[in-house]
């Protein structure tokens, strides 16, 4: 099935969870915020949250920035 991750289409296996997706992308779970269809997930739900066709996933982290 196809989902959207940070604005890009991506094919993933059926039943993939958020934690599984992060692992596939080689992203450490303790440093990111994940939003699925505008809902911000609790980190403890990454393992149980299954992804569905067309889901819009945003994965964010801290970057250098002061202001603006």
């Amino acid at each position: 099935m196809t989902i959207h991750v940070n604005g890009e289409s991506r094919g993933i296996g059926d039943g993939q969870t958020v934690a599984g997706l992060l692992q596939e992308l080689d992203i450490r779970t303790d440093r990111v915020a994940v939003e699925v269809n505008l809902e911000i997930l609790d980190r403890k739900d990454f393992e149980i949250r299954g992804l569905r066709e067309g889901d819009r996933v945003e994965i964010l982290s801290f970057i250098g920035g002061g202001a603006n």
Partner: peptide
């Protein structure tokens, strides 16, 4: 202070 932005997934 840090900004919050999309992770570069590519």
């Amino acid at each position: 202070t840090v900004a919050v932005r999309r992770v570069n997934i590519t």
